[in-house]
Amino acid sequence: MSAVHECTCGHRGENPYLPMSMVIQRIVDETDDRTIKSFDLAFACEEDAERFCFSPGQFCELSVFGKGEAPFGIASSPTEKGFLRFTIKKAGVVTSALHSLVPGDVIGLRGPLGNCFPLERMKGKDVVVIGGGFAFTTLRSLIVYLLEGGERDQYGKITVVYGARNPGLLMYKEDLAAWEERDDIEVWQTIDREAPGWTRKVGFVPAVVEEVAPSAENAIAVICGPPIMIRFTLPVMTKLGFQKEQIYTSLENRMKCGIGKCGRCNVGPKYVCVDGPVFSMAELEELPPEY
């Protein structure tokens, strides 16, 4: 055993399995059923913070030491300095352990991993962001990046359709409220059924997309959500004139290493961890339905 790894900076060398130490700064309940929390993390080491560089759509492996490690999309934008945000639903061993932590606790982080949303391709184009339920984490990163990256004028119209079963399950309520105040982004929030006090859209995401009808001309769409939502939204997109090459999504599969070695997250010959998680519908059409 070598010396105690006091500080991760400069010691990680070329070991992609070695996590950096992160301090939990802030934990926020995102939904009123309290199953989804956002964790704002700060690098324990200044050098790690300076070296860490990511793009919206990428993910990290988070670990609760002694419990295990799991992959999560980065929910904050590279334009938000001083913290990294991960929004995590309590589901398995690692997420349950994460939910039991408090600010000040130290967890591990490896990354950033995987590819990102097609930011370069989006330049000069309208961007349509469609999300459902819990699958809005990296979409938040993308939207904040487009709005706050100092290059807002590089992109055309930004349209967001975000749905959840009920108002209490919509995440990032402060962000949504702030975006609604702006005139350089159009936000459509929807819930499945009428609820007291709800004044926005009611209906499933595909129906709202059809009603809002964002133009397919010179546009890129990103759709993340439960498989059933994606399945019913795609025909609507086709009707609106979107080609498979214009639509992107982000896949999730069970992962361990996150670096293309452990052999489980593949969809046909492609690894979600290194070839994804972001794929265009045209790319997915070439792959078997193994996700």
């Binding site: 055993m1 070598s2 105690v4 790894h5 006091e6 991760t8 010691h11 070991n15 070695l18 996590p19 130490s21 609760v64 030491f65 002694g66 932590l101 606790d105 130290v106 591990g108």
Partner: peptide, 10 residues
Amino acid sequence: EHFNKVLQVP
């Protein structure tokens, strides 16, 4: 109370 230090294995 928690594991919070990473030790490298040579």
